[in-house]
Each structure stands twice: as structure tokens, then as C-alpha cells.
Amino acid sequence: MNPQQPVAVESIDRLCALANLPLPAERRARLAPMLADLVAAANELSRKLARAEHRAIVPIVRFPER
């Protein structure tokens, strides 16, 4: 994968196939640059959460009553 272009239109094609989401070509082309920005930020957050000090952290999907 080209690091300058982490989400190419082909990546969107594959993700759509995996998700069984049929999208017209022009929509897939539009999504690629937007997803590239979102994924770059999400990957950055993932790197942060992978640090040793966070190893014991579990996801919070339900809040405690305190």
C-alpha cells in the first residue's frame, strides 16, 4: 500500500464487498479521501492506546452507576 494514500478507491471496493454494501462507483470514489483522514486519526489513537501504560484498560460501553 502506498503510505501517501492509505485508502485507495480499491480499498473502498474491497471494504464494500466485505460489508456486502453495493455502492455506485462515484460514491466509492468520493469516500476514499474522507475515509483516509478518518482512518489516519483512528490509527493514531490506536497507537496511543497500544502504549504499555494503557495495557490494562478495557473498553467502556456501559457506564458504572457512580
Binding site: L15, A42, L45, S46, L49, I57, P59
Partner: peptide, 13 residues
């Protein structure tokens, strides 16, 4: 629909 499950779970972490 195009995020990875790991992205979602890291966000929840």
C-alpha cells in the same frame, strides 16, 4: 461501515 472493529474498540478504550 468501513472502520475496523479494532478502531471502534480502541475508541471505546
Amino acid at each position: 461501515e468501513m472502520y475496523l472493529a479494532t478502531h471502534y474498540l480502541q475508541a471505546q478504550r
